[in-house]
Structure formats: structure tokens, C-alpha cells
Amino acid sequence: MSHQTIELKNVSKTYMRDSLEIPVLSNISLTVPEGEFLALMGPSGSGKTTLLNLIAGIDRPDKKGSNRNPYVNQIIVHGTDLGTLGESALAAWRSRHMGFIFQFYNLLPVLTAYENVELPLLLTKLSRKEKREHVEAALNLVGLADRMQHYPKQLSGGQEQRVAIARAVVSDPTIIVADEPTGDLDKVSAAEIMTLLERLKSEYKKTIVMVTHDPRAAEKAHKVMHLEKGELSS
């Protein structure tokens, strides 16, 4: 029996725009077992990215439930109730458990591919040699060992996203969240990225939650869920 890596219990999220309340997610409950590859689909503004951000611990749901019903707005990821963590603890938790892949790669332009991948390891106590081994292994995994010293502007979009994937896996997180990882890529590059994500799931047993508009990308996932007007359906 597999463990539930991600559990969301009656999660709602409302944004405030001036004095206007905008409900984005409404009573979402979701479980993602360990090692699953889940794709979240839905139209723009449906709350996909918001849901991903909540799972990743970079945003907070609405206020937690009362003593009478504590299982409201509760997010448990890898056994940790994210609502109990302060900002610093949450940052440390993200660095240990989460790998991030963004639509626009979000590499630091002043750093080489090697240095970008090394970034998450700056928060660890690994020796310089160990860091080098980790970074080289991650860049080998994405097939960019020969581009280590290249800056992002010297790489194609697909290559940049592969560097971003290497950065996401270099600290060996348990979960990878990917927000439209193929959204800015051509078909060939998008296929390469999806193949890589599949490998991360099948060979490295990573739990992956991916937001996408792309049905071809979603096909690679084990499970596809749809968000519509803040409500989740299979």
C-alpha cells in the first residue's frame, strides 16, 4: 500500500483585490499517493497554479478551521501539516522536500548552468566535492553535462528548462511541482521535457504534481484532474 504524500482537506483560498473578495479555490480535498504523477488541468483562472502553490508551501490557504472542525484548510505534505510551520521553517521544509519547475524556467541570468543547479545546495551542509558530484549528476541526468559553464542566455528554451529540472532534482526532493513546464516550449522540446519528467517518476520514484494546459503533456501523467471555477473533478 502506498503512503499518501499529499493530503488536502477542505482547502479554500480567497484573494483580496482592494476590498473585493475573490474566491479561487473552494473546499478542495485531494490525496496524492507517493510516486504518483498527477496532472492538473483547467481553463485560465481556474485556480490550478494557486493549488500547486499551496501544495508547494509557497502560499497559504484561508484561515484554518475551528476546534470543532480542525480538518478545514489543512494541507499535509509528506507527513507535515504545513499550517503549523512558520515562514523560516516552511522555507527550510521547501528546500528539503520540494523541487520546482516553472513555465519561464526562472534561472538566474548571472549564474552559469552549473551555478544555477548548485543554488539549492547552498542551503545544505554538503562539502564542495559532494556538491560538485550532485550538480554533475543532475546535469548528466538532463543531458547538459557539456553546457555546465553556459549562461542561460546562451541556451535554448528547452535547454533552460532542462537546467531548471536539474535544479529541481539536485537536492533529491521527494516531490516535484511543475507549473506549465512545457508552456513556453516548441513541440520537440516539450516532448523532451515530458520524457524527463516521466523518467523522474519511473526511475527516481518522485511524486510529481504538474499544472498544464497541454493535453499531450497531461497524457504522460498517471492521473489527470480538472479544476473548474475553483472545484476539482477527476
Binding site: S88, A91, S95, L108, L119, L123
Partner: peptide, 14 residues
């Protein structure tokens, strides 16, 4: 600002 947000996402602290 976007880069600082990315760094925070990766676990870099205040």
C-alpha cells in the same frame, strides 16, 4: 523581485 521570489521558493530565507 522575481529572482528574490525564486530564491525564496527554493528555501532561501529572509
Amino acid at each position: 523581485m522575481r529572482e528574490y521570489a525564486v530564491l525564496k521558493t527554493l528555501g532561501f530565507t529572509r
